[in-house]
């Protein structure tokens, strides 16, 4: 009985992975070699033609650049703010537990809810932010209407939603740093800032490495937040690879190009993650 338990579970896991992940992925990759005008049309083999088209198009490179910018800035802000909040919540003060709970709340919200709330808040005629800005006598802010503002707004919502993940993970890590290290550093003459850079940060480097990796992959692949706020606009200013692939496949019904874009996005991510692992090895030799 027990002899078959482990192989049994492994088999179920492998089967589920094959059916639910590997299969669809391979299917999607295979689609990129065909031309297909709808999901029901007969596919025609075109080899690497789709890749040539996609790589030759300006919108691919625009989307790639947008993706890097969006993911890069969003992660940077999430990590910096997340660590800052974690350090604050690590201090002891009244109501700390409550505040720690509150700080995690945004992460629990479905993206749709967060985006809708944000859209209401900045609504051109009713939004509380719009009214406040107006009451203060400031000119109206066009959150999603200009190209640079749209990107900033998308990043703002992303940072608000996912900074708590960094905060919570980092806070958990902070609690594992031996107090004596801080005391030794104090005796050695290191002030709060030097203690952060010489004790906290090195001690939490493994955690930070994982946080940046996870958040990076998630942000690079993040579809819903951009789709729900700007849909990639205005004029493609916030369109990144997932949105482009979706638009090609399901709006333009160019399944082949959409699949090619998605596959290229996957390859780009693979290269970046490999590079990341090479630069910041997880099992650093002591």
């Amino acid at each position: 009985m027990t002899r078959w338990l482990l192989p049994g579970f492994l088999f179920v896991g492998a089967l589920a992975t094959l059916i639910l992940i590997v299969g669809p992925a391979l299917y999607a990759i295979s689609l990129s070699f065909y031309e297909q005008q709808s999901l029901t049309a007969d596919p025609i083999w075109v080899g690497l033609n789709n890749y040539a088209t996609v790589l030759g198009s300006a919108e691919f490179w625009n989307a790639l650049g947008n993706g890097f910018f969006y993911a890069g800035v969003a992660i940077l802000l999430q990590v910096v703010l997340g660590i800052g909040f974690a350090l604050l919540l690590h201090q002891s003060f009244r109501g700390r537990t409550l505040l720690r709970g509150l700080a995690f709340l945004p992460y629990l919200l479905p993206t749709v809810v967060a985006v809708l709330t944000f859209k209401w808040m900045i609504d051109g005629s009713l939004g509380i932010v719009t009214i406040l800005v107006d009451d203060l006598g400031l000119p109206p802010i066009y959150w999603f209407e200009t190209e640079s503002a749209a990107m900033m707004s998308v990043i703002l919502v992303s940072v608000w939603l996912w900074t708590p993940f960094v905060t919570t993970t980092f806070l958990a890590g902070l609690q594992t740093v031996p107090v004596q290290l801080y005391e030794a550093a104090r005796v050695d003459g290191a002030g709060p800032i030097r203690r952060f850079f010489h004790v906290t940060l090195p001690m939490l480097r493994p955690i930070l490495t994982v946080i940046i990796l996870l958040r990076g992959v998630w942000m690079f692949n993040k579809f819903d937040i951009i789709w729900l706020t700007t849909g990639g606009g205005p004029l493609g200013a916030t369109e990144h690879l997932p949105v482009l692939a979706y638009r090609q496949a399901f709006t333009l019904f160019d399944i082949g190009n959409g699949a090619a874009t998605a596959t290229l996005s996957f390859l780009v991510l693979m290269v970046i993650v490999t590079l990341y692992f090479w630069l910041f090895p997880m099992d650093e030799k002591k």
Partner: peptide
């Protein structure tokens, strides 16, 4: 003053040389 802690409290990511020099450099 200088202090020796029960669990040594050496900085794990620094070499022994850097550990010993840290207080001087600070």
């Amino acid at each position: 003053i200088a202090m020796v802690f029960q669990n040594y409290a050496l900085y794990p990511h620094k070499t022994i040389r850097a550990n010993m020099a840290f207080g001087l450099r600070m």
